[in-house]
Amino acid sequence: MKIGCPTEVKPQEFRVGITPNAAGEAVRHGHEVLIQAGAGHGAGFDDADYTAVGARIVATAEVVWAEAEMIVKVKEPQPGERKQLSEGQLLFTYLHLAPDPEQTRDLLASGATCIAYETVTDRAGGLPLLAPMSEVAGRLAPQVGAWTLQKANGGRGVLMGGVPGVGPARVVVIGGGVVGTHAARIAAGMGADVTVLDRSLPRLRYLDDVFGGTFKTSYASAGNTAELVAEADMVIGAVLIPGAAAPKLVTRAQLSTMKPGAAIVDVAIDQGGCFETSKATTHQDPIYEVDGIMHYCVANMPGAVARTSTIALGNATMPFMLALADKGWRAACAEDPHLLEGLNVHAGKLTNYAVGRALEIDVLSPQLAVKG
């Protein structure tokens, strides 16, 4: 199979879909790998790193899109990229379709088969291709939130760990999954007073057993959430419903109850965000203010640490990429029900039920799509 990897074109996105290590593995499996010139530079990989393992460097993205049978990327294809998708082509990347009807329409119109990293599952019910970036984004969230809290950036001017005689920042993390756990650990490590909110009592028990004393936990009832958000210097949104749009857990009206200059970091922004006032921003212009509250809503947070993120993502995606290339997408998905969960679009049909519910589009069973 011809596997292609174009340079990411989303603003301030420095990651690359295929690492030299993954490219070398694909070549050893008998596949041809096409890498756009310079695609790996943002993550610290030179073209020579790819040619050394047998990949072919091509001059433009147009060549990659035209020649490759499978396109491997990081971020969802941008409008110009979607125009280059062809019928029968396989796209393997993050898609986040639920809050993005325009992208969904374009992918359906292309006739391509699209497998989304974020809905591939594992035996434990986890999301193995989302987890590495969730870990990165979770660990970044307190870091960027601390920057947002600085007075020069419009924040309250509160130091995360305080100093002797002055209390630390109060941080509330909404969601106790992968993002929330890593965010809470880092925020607590910075010396903040941290509370994690979640609706799963088993998850809260787990967090309390493993991290008891490091941070606090609380049940995410509407009342508890409102009370803690009002007291917080920073609120980190870390809620995920696989494939679906994120629920809006903090309303605009609640902003008036918050401390002026408090910071919101919405890690769920890829799925539409979990604050009513969230809108996607970029690394170039990451924060904005609504009703005196500073919002950090960058839609590709892990892109800020492109090398770490690329290697972590490549480690996770490589086995699936090889299975798709070795067996073809139909056989690979038929053999692996967890990979089948990643199938979002095929031949003009939507094949993910959560996305279908979010966008009110009829869904073709992925099992039927595989059978053709």
Rank of each mutant, 00 (worst) to 15 (best):
R15K: 11
G212K: 10
Y94S: 08
P77S: 01
V171W: 01
L140G: 12
L313N: 00
A141G: 12
L249T: 14
G191M: 03
F14C: 01
R307T: 13
E289K: 07
T257C: 13
L350R: 02
T282K: 11
M258A: 08
T217L: 00
Q271C: 10
F92Q: 08
A98Y: 04
V179G: 05
K327M: 01
F211S: 11
N300D: 08
K248V: 15
N21W: 15
A187Q: 04
T181F: 08
A187S: 12
G30V: 09
P168D: 10
F211G: 02
L140R: 05
A184M: 01
W65V: 11
D100F: 09
K83V: 14
I311F: 02
V144N: 11
G261Q: 00
G24S: 13
A68S: 15
G80K: 00
T148L: 15
V72W: 00
E135F: 07
L313D: 02
N300T: 08
P99V: 14
A334G: 14
R330H: 14
G88T: 06
M190T: 05
S221A: 12
P99K: 07
P77F: 00
G237H: 07
A246R: 09
A43P: 09
V136K: 06
A109T: 13
A61R: 13
G314K: 14
S134I: 02
E135V: 10
G175R: 03
